[in-house]
Amino acid sequence: MPVTFFEWVFFLLQQYGLLFAKGAVVTLLLAVSGTVIGCVIGLFVGILQTIPLYPDDSIVKRSFYKCLRAILAAYVELFRGTPMIVQAMVVYYGSMQVYNIDMSPLFAGFLVVSVNTGAYMAETVRGGIISIDVGQQEAAKAIGMNHFQLMSCVILPQALRNIMPQIGNNLIINIKDTSVLNVISVTELYFLSKSAAGTYYRYFEVFFITCAIYFIMTFAVSRFLLWIEKRMDGPDNYSLVPYDPLADPCGPFAPKKGGN
């Protein structure tokens, strides 16, 4: 039997290496898919909450949006305002007891992480949208764009860029916080570590390894997101393009007739 700390660590890695790897994969899968779906939910909710309403819009349209917004606001408040560990219990056992749906713990976990992240992302997206100065919206309107076009071409690309750090935050939080899903027996990293630790009663050594794995995952993810942000920003400099008027024989109104 191993004696020193490092011997134990080495031994446990040999014994449970595959288990740790499996747990890490499940954790990462849950966190990434939950964050992605959460972002999509957040994007929709955030956009729906920032659609402008005008006093001369029809009463039907206005009351429809008002109802929708109330529901969305309730969703955000509810899921932001309760702990994920409790949500997991309610969703997993509730669905079984009340609706007789026997979903796998993994799916229940995925659902909880997504919906939870969505609630946070909704507010983040809303913040991202209102952080883009109104001037650009006005300029987009002034060249005839409708709300959908100005959102998809001008506002959202910039808003998404601006909220990238927050998306990264959420992803990292999710990697760590999926550990609470052990209460519904999702076989993620923490759950498997606990069972591994129990076999030899080596809690410190096992959770030292678990700790290292969590850190490696979050650190890698944070570096990866920084790289994505850099890519989104594009090149720092630009090259001048020599302009040859002879290569551009069309007058201002020529294009209306179509190509050459």
Binding site: Q136, A139, A140, C153, V154
Partner: peptide
């Protein structure tokens, strides 16, 4: 058309894209 005091160019696009987006999208 409208030109603004604060220019209000679309910051996520290049100069060329700024001028093209109205033609292509609208």
């Amino acid at each position: 058309g409208m030109v603004f005091q604060q220019f209000n160019l679309f910051n996520n696009m290049t100069v060329l894209e700024n001028c093209m987006v109205g033609l292509v999208k609208v």
